[in-house]
Design a protein around this nucleic acid. Structure first.
Lengths: 240, 240
DNA sequence: CGTGGGTTTGAGTGGGCTCAAGCCCGGTGG
DNA sequence: CCACCGGGCTTGAGCCCACTCAAACCCACG
């Protein structure tokens, strides 16, 4: 089983790494014992190398993915094929459910940002579960509605805030989502270009803003590592 | 019954006006006869005058609204209280479901943009229906996922396109959503300020762009009425 | 030690914002 | 009926943020 190649401490949020099972997942706690047993028989573990594509915008896919390890970049092509990073998904996150449920082609692409392990649930199985277990369905619906709320906030921010404000906010968001280590360094390393595509700006602009933040003593950088020095002030910059 | 005050032809999409009933609604077709009968007993018709507020961002509300007549502006406050228009909802649209399902406070506000008639379904009733009727639930989920897809596209557009492109696209979107009359005039009249808040720009900028479009022979305007003269070219401007 | 991907900095330009003034039209009251 | 008022629309001028293009740098890697 390829999963064992990653039998080391996860860098993120928890240390369960490859031992993480669906049973530990909040959403799947709603399932009955027999549903869980069935699911565990039918779920397939998949391994992706860094930069491999899980699925591509415009294609149909065969089920949903629950991330067990690693980070997945969810993005979408915009004008002239320019990439817009929608989010980074990590352990416990569920991806690709939108198009499965609405029975459409994928509206975004997913690419492994590190080595990634996922559990893949075929869509017929998922639909069966949804059909028969209301509690589970309700949890899934809550998750979707949550994401919709996040999107609405995102729209308002990107439409109204300056690049500087958005950058600060994005950094704080990542801090919240992925956490920091003992030195206050962000627990995820992201290329400048991807940060820019997340904020919705040019790479050079983002770099300039980050430089400003460094000069103002809000951040320190060691290559891709970003260390938070003054979160309070950063929040003020972000205007939240 | 106050609904009768609006017993005239709806200006939009259909002419069923106040006679429109839940039974005619695509989503509610999934319900059984007994569920429908029950629902019709429990649903309350409500009337809102122009500019009245249906619900306010940050408040809890008691159920979902199905629009029977008129137009509702869905918006959200951003930086310094600046309004972001998220969408205009019209006949047959369902609003306020997000916060009901995820059991959170509303993340947006709704205001009557014209005289509005809605059916209000208390949230306990809605949850009961969802619980017992999978087909209905599935339709609702599809609707939500659809909206999520729209949001993602919206994010990419607003992040990457110029104000000119976004304006063109927004006009085409409104054309698609609300239709045009025999003269090719948009079947919804919107204040410049709201258009700007939808595109995510300053009112003056939006006006300038619309003037450009007029000079280029793409549009004609008679006060708030917007007439499409060259949709093909407008699409090219929108870059889709 | 060269190569290449990513990062950083600089210079120049222009899109879009702000501020300010004028216009148009409908409503109201004398 | 006219004068006045106010809200929304339009246009102009000026400025600044953020984009583009270009060049240099840095580090990892073969």
């Amino acid at each position: 089983m390829p999963v064992e190649t990653f039998d080391r401490r996860s860098k993120f949020r928890t240390t369960i790494g490859a031992e993480f099972r669906l049973r530990n997942h909040n959403l799947f706690k709603q399932l009955t014992e027999s549903e869980l047993t069935l699911l565990e028989r039918l779920v397939v573990q998949k391994l992706y190398k860094k930069n491999e594509i899980l699925y591509r915008e415009g294609c149909r896919h065969s089920g949903i993915y629950i991330i067990q390890q690693g980070i997945v970049k969810i993005s979408k092509r915009g004008v002239n094929g320019k990439l817009q990073v929608l989010r980074f998904a990590q352990i416990e996150d569920i991806i690709a459910y939108r198009s499965i449920i609405s029975n459409e082609v994928a509206c975004s692409s997913a690419r492994a940002y590190s080595e990634v392990v996922v559990s893949h649930i075929p869509y017929t199985i998922l639909l069966d579960l949804l059909k028969q277990n209301w509690k589970f369905t309700h949890e899934i619906m809550k998750m979707i509605c949550n994401e919709l709320g996040t999107s609405n906030t995102f729209i308002t921010n990107i439409a109204q805030k300056s690049v500087r404000e958005r950058t600060a906010e994005m950094l704080l968001f990542l801090k919240d989502e992925f956490g920091v280590d003992a030195c206050n360094a962000l627990q995820i390393t992201i290329r400048r270009e991807d940060l820019a595509n997340m904020v919705g700006t040019a790479t050079e602009s983002l770099i300039r803003i980050i430089s400003e933040f460094r000069n103002e003593g809000l951040l320190a950088c060691q290559r891709r590592k970003i260390i938070f020095l003054n979160t309070k002030q950063l929040k003020r910059v972000a205007n939240i």
